[in-house]
Design a protein around this nucleic acid. Structure first.
Lengths: 296, 296
DNA sequence: GCCATTCTCTGACTTTAGTCAGAGAATGGC
DNA sequence: GCCATTCTCTGACTAAAGTCAGAGAATGGC
């Protein structure tokens, strides 16, 4: 539980208005001549097809139920379900031509619904509504992101670390060669020497951050990265806050890090998060700036 | 259909995020051990009880269905349904002590849900989210208001006109006596001499505006009023735009009105809506300012 | 090659949600 | 007092939504 009473009340008023106005209309528009279960499924399969297990996950439905829905869509000729060549247990649902058409109809209705929300408003109000919606959307998305401790060898961690390297390679003037950098070996980022966090949005890894906890020395942030499509959600700041707290919990009273001048957003973040620039405390060849912050 | 493609897309993204995050959680929280139909009904009955017909209306449900839900709540001892003394066909549902308790549980869960949306965010993000929600709430509410032409004798029109008089009475330094004012007699505000609009929110009248259409003379706005709880929704502006259009449609090219200096919000509205202050064109005793606008 | 595991499907269910056609009690207008 | 209307309820439905316990095919690790 969080937020003061006024905030809670406002959120509740919002929930009420929005479920009434958007929720009800949504079902009404989407499911005009088709059960909404089927409609949602049709939608979720998408242009490029989707594995059945993924559909189940995304929609949070029982496996038997999804199977039945798929068969009914198949019977209508909208969908084809086939085993994946790589793993024949997994099956992939794909839209047929008719299915694509049907989905386009749903798409049109979604536009209609959106239009009907805007229609009674004048130009200025529309602009304000859309801007406020974007803000709500962004922040609710931010609130959906989870941070979990994982082993640096976990597939999600690997995915993030690879993206991290690839991005540095692209952004640093000099390119980036992991072998030349002081990147800690994974052992340093798992207990008891450290830890590794992965941020996930709807189960997808969208960022990571490592923490070194050397006994008797300052804790150190390593390999912090946020996926491009998950930026502007305050995730960097959240990583820092989380790492700070964990470092303090492990008895450290200083947190430090180094970074490259090309990462201007990161530089701004560190400064505004209370880090002070300090002289180089290591000889990381890719670093131009060193920061530290007193914690706890 | 309204709004350009970018706007429509943003609204759709918003709908998606919100139905996922709020909608799903909403049902989850609310209906933990009770069908959401019952939960919604329990909620809608409220502390003070509600007529069955009203419940039906508010929730948009079939009469048989509501009846059945009520009986199941009655069987659980949460609700008591009794005929109204004034009209024994109408029955009123009231919460029992147990029902009140149960409703408090739902209330707590709504708070929990709201809290869970805010919890992962930091203070600054929370403030921004809540502000954006308030804005969305306000504008969606504004978009829900309907404007209908009604006869000035319609109960909803009467209700608004009475509130209008009562408010002027309170706000004018001199008080307000309808008999001394140049208020048109109702005949002037019905076709063919004019028309009368009522704004409704969820069926409740929340504002009104009359239009005089004297042949060969400027059209005139009369008795425009918006209920206090429906202000800040841009309703005044919407009334003006609607009346302007209707006046133009009836062949008028000037729209005018008079107003009292105590109504400062109205003065600002007229100015920003393109009305120019002009010399007195009538001898309305309660007016301090006269405006007109060229239309069409 | 065996075995535990993963993934999807089927059959047999239950519960919700909601509709429709009256029936029966009250009421209001005449 | 009669009659049309209003309001709620009951019985008899249907359809959607979802659960649960296996069965059967593939796969991966050993």
């Amino acid at each position: 539980m969080a937020g003061d009473t006024t905030q809670i009340d406002q959120v509740r008023r919002f929930n009420r208005t929005v479920t009434e106005r958007v929720g009800v209309l949504h079902d009404h528009y989407l499911g005009r001549d088709r059960p909404i279960g089927e409609a949602r499924l049709l939608w979720e399969i998408g242009e490029r097809g989707q594995d059945v297990r993924r559909l189940r996950e995304r929609l949070g439905l029982d496996s038997g139920y999804v199977s039945r829905l798929l068969r009914s869509l198949e019977a209508e000729g909208l969908v084809k379900v086939e085993p994946q060549p790589r793993d024949r247990r997994v099956r992939t649902a794909r839209l047929t031509a008719a299915g694509r058409e049907e989905r386009a109809v749903l798409d049109g209705r979604s536009d209609e619904l959106a239009g009907s929300l805007l229609a009674p408003l004048n130009t200025a109000q529309r602009a304000r509504l859309v801007a406020a919606m974007a803000e709500v959307d962004r922040l609710l998305t931010a609130a959906t992101v989870t941070l979990d401790t994982v082993d640096p060898d976990h597939p999600d961690a690997r995915h993030c670390l690879q993206s991290y390297s690839a991005e540095l390679q692209e952004r640093f003037e000099t390119g980036f060669d992991a072998a030349r950098s002081l990147l800690p070996d994974p052992g340093e980022l798992r207990p008891p020497h450290g830890l590794f966090l992965v941020a996930r949005l709807h189960g997808e890894p969208v960022g990571c951050a490592g923490l070194k906890l050397p006994p008797g020395a300052p804790a150190e942030v390593k390999r912090m990265w946020v996926a491009p499509h998950a930026r502007r959600l305050g995730l960097g700041r959240r990583f820092l806050a989380e790492l700070e707290e964990r470092a303090a919990r492990h008895g450290h009273d200083v947190l430090r890090l180094d970074t490259n001048k090309a990462l201007d957003a990161a530089l701004g973040l560190y400064r505004s998060a209370g880090f002070q620039e300090v002289p180089a405390f290591n000889d990381e060849p890719y670093a131009h700036h060193w920061f530290e912050k007193r914690i706890a």
